[in-house]
Write a protein that binds this DNA or RNA. Structure first.
Lengths: 333, 333
DNA sequence: CTGAAAGCGCTTACAG
DNA sequence: CTGAAAGCGCTTACAG
């Protein structure tokens, strides 16, 4: 910058003004500065800039996912990026691997680099350690799940509503014995989906059969085993609601191996690639992770734009996609 | 930091030394500093730190993908992250959407934030504009494809070798008319895979039938149409080599709709979720995107560690995964 | 081993 | 409209 000033024959102040938009600088001086910038290949240093700026903003935000390579999270990432891009804001991303310790380290690393805000897919634990950062002026938004032990802006899918829709769809085909395969309810989304399953049954006056509600220990393989187990039982379910992606895949694999994919109905939560190439196609309740990201970013930027009100909790709707597996009727009995 | 110094009753220099590892500071002073850090909840500001540091490093690197939400790229991202994490280095990520202009903007944005290095999945165009950044000391590594018009470190999959393996596998089943569906050869990976296809045929002394080599305009849909077209022709292929993910899916969908998935052999390039639930399972040549990322990061960090030699070009091997579709024999004819 | 001082690249009152 | 000066939070020779 000093070089630019020298070449343009102006002061540092003037160069700074031009580089930052050029308000109130005479046109000829501004022109000389821009020429010098071009000539010298000057690159503005935003980290030095933000150090001295009154607002201290760095035009970057931090994103923490369970795993950046999980397609669900990478679509959230994309959604955030789309909104951030319009504002010239860059995104840092990191994987917590669902470990509280690592999540904490990432927030510190982001903080030390002066991010303007944080969007976090929280690991299930106490997030009150973030209160200090928030008090220090860094807005924080949680996505996909609410934080533990603190109140904060967050955006989640309509897990309970979507699950209820899935189960009601099966009920409408005449099914009364509907198996539930899902993660343990320690996980927020799993608990919500189980709640939706129960609510749908209850509205129909159907009593829950605890033998039909199962939590595979390992998603893919476990779901495979449990599906075999459920269908081999004395009073098997006539339909399955699989409440997570990999669980859906495991269950579908089991149905195909048994050759019963045309007999046992199935609706999954979350969409799956190739779901429409299989016969029957897999009926699912799809989430909209990109929208989750866009909305999370919107909440964050509204804080950066000065919103000071109470925390907001946005729910993104889900969509039933009918493809065949969920429309199989129960056996004539 | 000033506060910490005041509370601990030492100078700024001493606090800085302790915060940066504490070499050559008396134990009691160091202890007082650490207590003060704890007490005040001091957060080190790495952006201010790097501004003054002799090496000017910020412990962050920039990643540019075509699209962060594409599972292939997000696995590269993950691989890079794994290596970077061990060094306490953070990653910025952005999507170029394959637009040269946007790629350029991202490199500038990263540069303005003082990243220590760049890993780029290049859009196909002239990358000589990056020479200035590299000359300024920012190492750059290209992943998945080499850059245009400049020589630089890069890591790519064995596209030609993998394609040849796929085609040889089909030849070994007795196929002689093998259709090729792939992106236009302007794309580096597509050109390489076509080269592998041709090399395999040539080694068997089979002359290429240009009618069998097709480039769908839109990956999924286009591949679907072209598959119908190819199989309806006078002298149809008995096997297909689909050289890209979405193209594989489109072609498989077409085979299933025609009810000919057990007649026409198919090998795809790149693995596909649920490929083993379909009947027959889809035989593929799989890439290892995570390894692409890990190796790209290794190249970058070796530069940061002082490597000054000529540019290196690493090739990551592919793996044939046999699942059924690629083992179908040609009709007895 | 410790501290006072200079300075990294920039922005921003302030005076002119 | 323009520039000289102070200072953002930190590191690093330098002297002691």
């Amino acid at each position: 910058m000093r070089e630019v000033a020298a070449v343009a024959g102006v002061s540092l102040s003037t160069v700074s003004r031009v580089v930052n938009g050029g308000e109130g600088v005479r046109a000829d001086l501004a022109g000389r500065v821009r020429d010098a910038v071009e000539l010298l290949g000057y690159r503005h240093n935003v980290t030095a800039s933000s150090l001295r700026r009154s607002d201290g903003l760095t035009a970057s935000i931090g994103l923490i996912f369970e795993d950046v390579s999980n397609p669900f999270f990478s679509l959230i990432h994309r959604g955030v990026e789309e909104v951030a891009r319009e504002r010239g804001v860059l995104t840092f991303a990191g994987s917590s691997d669902e470990e509280p310790e690592r999540e904490r380290k990432l927030t510190e690393a982001f903080g030390a680099r002066g991010v303007d805000g944080l969007i976090i897919v929280p690991a299930p634990h106490d997030h009150s350690y973030l209160l200090r950062d928030r008090a220090a002026g860094t807005p924080i938004v949680f996505a996909d799940r609410p934080p533990g032990f603190i109140d904060a802006d967050h955006v989640v899918s309509d897990n309970a509503g979507g699950a209820a829709t899935a189960v009601e769809h099966l009920l409408a085909q005449g099914h009364r014995r509907i198996g539930y395969l899902g993660d343990r309810p320690e996980i927020f989304t799993a608990a919500e989906r189980l709640r939706g399953y129960r609510a749908a049954l209850e509205r129909r006056g159907i009593e829950e059969d605890v033998a039909l509600v199962r939590h595979p220990r390992f998603r893919g393989e476990g779901a495979y085993e449990i599906t075999l187990d459920l269908l081999g039982a004395d009073r098997p379910p006539t339909a399955l609601f699989t409440s997570q992606n990999l669980i859906t895949i495991g269950a579908v694999r089991a149905l195909h191996d048994l050759g019963r994919e045309h007999e046992v109905a199935l609706v999954g939560f979350d969409d799956v690639v190739l779901a429409d190439v299989l016969t029957p196609g897999i009926t699912v309740v799809a989430q909209d992770p990109r929208e989750l990201g866009r909305e999370g970013a919107a909440l964050l930027f509204s804080r950066l734009d000065g919103y000071r009100g109470p925390s907001r909790h946005t729910v993104i709707p889900t969509t039933l996609i009918v493809r065949g597996s969920g429309e199989l009727p129960p056996p004539a009995a």
